[in-house]
Design a protein around this nucleic acid. Structure first.
Lengths: 292, 292
DNA sequence: AAATGATTGTACTGCCGGTATAAAATAGTT
DNA sequence: AACTATTTTATACCGGCAGTACAATCATTT
């Protein structure tokens, strides 16, 4: 990931959030980023791909922060609230989620399919979390609850006015989550559900796990890009993580505790997005059964 | 409303439903309708206005059918189910509702504002109906319930696959309505709500009531367009409705019972859409307080 | 038959996403 | 320093888009 490419992505993101995807022309991006058309098409094959890169960066970051939250302490509804907040807060005042939907309903089949898979994996994540938080007995109803919670949340974010403060946002999420609890109880009482457990899982197009060796390499390389004052710490962290990664039986809980402060070393740095991408790969490995 | 214009509207609607709004060019519409560009821009000032006309026709028709359902017998949850089904069934296998959302999230501010007002009035209608059906004691929670029901329904229509049969559709609506009941009970028990009653009412830009005299005229004129075999009946209906309309104290319940069979005379006729538009105006008058 | 208004056909504008390409700048290697 | 390879730039171009302009034609009314 070129630093220049990241610069273009940031410019495009700014414009998309400000004026919407359809209302942002490639020429606008070129002007904003100060590059030529040839360069743009060197980085992306189309305007769509540029957008997909932005979404991928965003979803990757969200999943890293969510895993970090889960690794922080005992699980519970409050953790779920914070995990959902992560996604919403990260979307800079809820503008990215509108971007999502604009694309989801756009005419372009390529974009639609991609966004649909993003949406489905989000639903699958929520279904899984609901059973973790509220107990196995709700598993048959978790898919329905996830779908409904998603719909409710979407409406509250879109149509209720003035989500300025972060407290207002969190108030709405808590409200919706309490409603979801009521829905789970109600469905369980009446033993009613429309969807099947695991309905949203689409293992088909889930990308294969990254190679541990490659992730280790990337982390070591990243540590070298740190400024002098944090480079030593970074080297220690990256070194520990990569040796654990390559060892016979990696100690996952240790790694989880180290992954958080290591990633935070890159906060505010130009390659912060890249760091998050790499850490996203690490978390996927940590969550996968063959490493646990 | 020209018959030719209606023909163009039908052609455009067909294409929009088939290929989406963004993927339908004006040239496509011209070819499909067999008209020239000049004529198109004689009817509509833009592609957007053409779409707005289609949506208006559709929402008008839906509201007429809903009123007819309500006038049919005692109120209750089953009536609500049927009323919601009207809108969804009318959207030809749920394709129009996706068109709605495509526009709602589109880049065009003109379209967005219009669709937002449509959506809000739908929410206001649902809020009102929920209090009518489940009782006054739920009024403080009806706005929240309406918003959430809308969100849930949207997700179930979009992401659960294969809504082929009408039974499948009605099954989902019933499911969502039962969940909405649970939400109403839950909110009432905990006395929790985020929205205020009447939050969705936007009287500001609600168009003023049509003139009763004008509506009477239109109905009489419509009756003359009927084929021979039904023209006599149509004249009787239209005559009765228009004299009642102009009388001191119109007998609303009588008119409701006549309005239904009168409108049905136009089913399958070329000016069926126009008839629905006129009847929509009549129902607005019937529902308005100064006629009741 | 004259007049009026709707309709047609066609050419045009400006913007769009995307392609092509030669020249210029930059980086890497010896 | 010189040579090479790659990246970047500038620019012209393509087909398609929404929307405009306008003279020619058609249909209806009077």
């Amino acid at each position: 990931m070129n630093e220049r490419k990241q610069h273009v992505l940031n410019a495009a993101k700014r414009l998309f959030l400000e004026n919407g995807f359809a209302n942002t022309s490639i020429q606008n991006i070129l002007d904003e980023a100060g590059i030529s058309k040839g360069t743009f098409y060197n980085y992306f094959n189309s305007k769509n791909e540029c957008l997909i890169s932005i979404i991928e960066e965003s979803t990757g970051t969200a999943s890293v922060l969510r895993e970090e939250l889960a690794a922080d302490g005992p699980d519970g509804p409050e953790v779920l609230v914070e995990q959902i907040l992560v996604r919403l807060r990260m979307n800079r005042e809820q503008k990215l989620i509108r971007l999502y939907e604009a694309i989801l309903h756009s005419g372009d089949p390529e974009l639609r399919d991609y966004m649909k898979s993003v949406h489905l994996s989000e639903l699958a994540w929520l279904e899984q979390r609901l059973t973790e938080v509220y107990g196995e007995q709700f598993r048959p109803y978790a898919a329905d609850a996830a779908l409904m919670e998603f719909g409710m949340l979407g409406q509250y974010l879109q149509f209720a006015p003035d989500i300025t403060s972060s407290e207002e946002l969190s108030k709405r999420i808590r409200f919706v989550i309490r409603r979801t609890e009521a829905l789970l109880r109600d469905m369980a009482e009446n033993d009613e559900h429309l969807l099947e457990a695991g309905q949203f899982d689409l293992r088909a197009d889930s990308p294969s796990l990254p190679a541990p060796g490659r992730v280790a390499e990337e982390m070591l390389r990243l540590a070298e890009t740190l400024p002098h004052e944090s480079r030593g710490t970074g080297r220690e962290f990256a070194g520990f993580l990569s040796t654990e990664l390559k060892s016979e039986k990696p100690r996952a809980s240790l790694m989880q505790s180290i992954a958080v402060p290591f990633r935070k070393l890159f906060d505010g740095l130009p390659n912060e997005p890249e760091a998050r991408t790499v850490m996203s790969a690490l978390w996927r490995l940590l969550k996968s059964s063959n490493l646990k």
